[in-house]
Amino acid sequence: MIATGDAVLVINAGSSSIKFELFDAQQVPGALYAGQVEGIGAAPRFSAKDAAGARLADQRWSEGGAPGDHGAALRVIIGWLAGVLAGRRIAAIGHRVVHGGPDLAAPVLVDATVMERLGALASLAPLHQPHNLAGIAAAAEHFPGVPQVACFDTAFHRAHAWEADTYALPPEFYARGIRRYGFHGLSYEYIARSLAQTDPALAAGRVVVAHLGNGASLCAMHDGRSIDSTMGFTALDGVPMGTRSGQIDPGVLLHLMASDGMDTTAVQKLLYGNAGLKGMSGISQDVRDLEASADPRAAAALSHFCWRVRREVGALAAALGGIDALVFTAGIGENAASIRARICAGLGFLGIEVDPALNDANAPDISAPGATTRVLVRATDEEGMIARHVLALLQRSEKA
């Protein structure tokens, strides 16, 4: 039972980082503290701030004594939290889990059976799923008896029509779970919820959301529900990303395996780690680095990225039968004004036009005067969405 002063801890374990936010269980949203350990396995850095944004911790490690894996990084976070909890009890811990498969379509309390089912999906999200599960295991070890709740990036998309989710394969493959799942669902769910609160009429309409970060995808929403998404069976599909290829002709992979002798491990390494902006540019996966570079490969990589995102906006508008708003979110979407401008430059036929001054200022609404389709910039909050799910699940469990 949630009591006054209790806290909810949210853990978002990625491939080389663990983000965390601590919430007062009775005042969600609005984190009390937030931070992360980034650069795990390379050049780790721990940082934390309070609700006002004041920096409370900023620690870097030399080669000795650095957290070398996710378990060690979580111990750093827990050690720091012990000093700020001030008697608060952690009542539950919520975790972002990228893949829930065909059956896990809502947040669940984690037990051994759930862990086994999620572990079986690790090959479908190799950059994320193993680390998500490592975060759950480490949290369970440090907080024995505290409920752990898994929240899935695939869940928001589970109501898609069959036509949107199936591949052109014999039906038995779909029955086995070989289908398009979609990802970044916690982010899209937050944006849908936020729009419903600030502009209900727009939220009820046809909205394309572009979650553009190191991982990137787009989602078509109508009346706050996911209709289609650019990601598919894995988080590898769709637009190019920081290190991931995005959509690629499967014939390319067959050719590489037959002609170059590449095995599945080599193909996975190429598509997940040595492709995308990093692979195309040979420089960096960071848009800021590419925009600052004079190397023509950097410019080419950004041009391809913008072209592919623009194409997917058009495709998703077709899936919706029109478009009332385009929403940019996540690291690139929220901060890279030049990328937003380049994506929107070819979308005038959809009524999309941005105001350069508003766009450069990262304004919440960057639509040009007279544009028939609104273009918005919104911060996402996956951790806040997870905290809401955790509390809702605990409340349902108490009433059961």
Rank of each mutant, 00 (worst) to 15 (best):
G333S: 07
A325H: 02
R378G: 09
I332T: 09
I323F: 01
M385A: 14
G348Q: 14
G370I: 05
T380I: 02
S367I: 03
E383R: 06
A357D: 15
N335M: 01
D360K: 15
G351C: 02
I323M: 15
E353D: 14
G348E: 14
L358M: 13
S367G: 08
S338H: 10
A317Y: 09
I323N: 00
A368H: 09
E382V: 11
C344A: 15
V377H: 01
G346H: 02
V377W: 00
L316S: 06
I386H: 02
G333M: 04
A371H: 06
D324C: 09
I366E: 03
V375Q: 06
E382C: 10
C344R: 01
L316P: 07
L316D: 06
V377P: 01
I352H: 10
A337R: 02
A317C: 12
C344W: 03
P369M: 09
G321A: 06
T329W: 03
L350P: 12
A330R: 01
A357K: 13
G351A: 04
T373K: 00
C344N: 11
A379C: 11
A368C: 10
D355L: 02
N335C: 02
L376I: 12
V313E: 03
G333Q: 02
L320W: 11
R378T: 07
P364W: 05
A379L: 14
A317N: 10
D365Q: 09
F349P: 01
A330Q: 08
C344D: 11
R342T: 15
A336E: 14
E382Q: 11
P369D: 11
L350M: 13
G348W: 04
E353W: 01
A357I: 13
I352F: 11
F349Q: 09
R378Y: 06
E382R: 05
I339G: 00
G333I: 00
T372L: 14
D355F: 00
A379T: 13
D355T: 05
F349N: 12
D324H: 12
G322F: 03
G322K: 08
I386R: 00
I323P: 00
L350E: 13
E382N: 09
L320Y: 04
G351L: 01
G314C: 12
N335F: 04
L350F: 09
G333E: 02
P356Q: 14
